[in-house]
Simulated scan of single mutants.
Amino acid sequence: MKYIIFDFDGTLADSSTVFMDAWNTYAETFKYYPVKSEDIIATRNLNLHQRAKLFNFPMHKLPIILPKIYSYFKNHILEVKVFEGIKEMLDVLSQNGYSIVILSSNAKENIEMLLKQERIDTVSQVLTSSKLFGKDTVLKKFINKHQLIPENVLYVGDEVRDIIACNKVGLPFMWVSWGLDGLDLVEKEKPKYVVHTPQGIISTLLPPTYFQSNGEKENMI
């Protein structure tokens, strides 16, 4: 495997609070219901359309609302951090020969700002999808551009829509449990790997010789 493509929000970046605040900021304007942190937890096993119906969110207005959400994100970037252990995990993967790529629906400027803020310099490329459900198109272009075979790429993310995108182009998928979607929702799409910590990503991808040479034990994943 040569490339590891990471989702950004919910996988690398702990941005749920900022996105919740952004959501609530525009709730009255677009006539949908505001949410609390417990609502996000309670709806982890609902898909996007089910959540939209529950909170009366107008999906047809998504192209109007989403840029406003990302603009709010940019203005509150200092409130966003990567999850604990993410930077160290990226460093280890990069040191062991993996090329790190990010693919997100978030704005490229926002992602690059956070990487700089967190002093992460292991990401070789940031890809963005202008459509919430258009990642499969971006992935296909990336694979063709670099003349890759799916077996040489792994996508790491937290949402079922990302698994569906990977399944369309035949990419293996690793689901992380600390993000937006719950296991009951994503397991129907059969992710190749399931991990519960950033260390679990390392434990899954690196051979036992890495841990032996570094005097480390593999953590539970």
Rank of each mutant, 00 (worst) to 15 (best):
V169K: 02
P172L: 00
P191G: 00
L171R: 08
L183Y: 14
K168V: 05
E189S: 12
K192S: 12
P207V: 06
S177V: 09
K188N: 07
K192I: 00
I201M: 06
W175D: 03
K188G: 00
P191D: 01
Y193T: 15
T204A: 14
G182V: 03
P207Y: 12
T204I: 05
V176I: 12
W178H: 14
N167V: 03
L171Q: 13
L205D: 05
G179V: 05
G179R: 00
V169M: 08
F211E: 08
E189G: 00
S213Y: 04
G182D: 03
K190F: 04
N167L: 05
W175A: 14
T197Y: 07
G182A: 03
K192R: 12
M174D: 05
M174N: 10
Q199L: 07
H196P: 00
D181K: 02
E187M: 11
Y210I: 08
G200L: 07
L180Y: 06
F211A: 13
V176D: 03
L171E: 08
H196N: 14
M174W: 04
V195E: 01
T209A: 13
V169R: 06
D181V: 00
T209D: 15
L183C: 03
W178A: 12
G170Y: 09
G200Y: 06
P172S: 15
W175T: 00
P208R: 11
G200E: 06
V176F: 04
T209C: 08
V186I: 13
N214S: 09
L185W: 03
P207C: 10
P198I: 01
M174A: 15
I202V: 15
G170S: 12
T197K: 12
V194M: 12
S213L: 13
K188V: 12
T197C: 06
L205R: 02
S203Y: 15
T204L: 10
F173A: 07
M174F: 05
S203G: 10
S213P: 00
F211C: 14
D181G: 00
V195L: 08
L171W: 06
K192A: 09
L183W: 15
F173G: 02
G170P: 11
F173K: 00
L183S: 04
V186R: 02
K190T: 08
S203K: 10
Q199E: 09
K190G: 02
Q199N: 11
L185K: 02
V194C: 08
P208Y: 14
P198K: 01
Q212C: 07
Y210W: 15
L171G: 13
P191Q: 00
L205H: 02
Y193L: 10
V194N: 06
L205G: 05
W178G: 13
S213N: 15
L183Q: 08
F211N: 10
E187K: 14
K188H: 05
M174Q: 07
G182H: 06
Y210G: 14
V195D: 05
P207I: 08
V169N: 08
L183A: 03
Y193P: 12
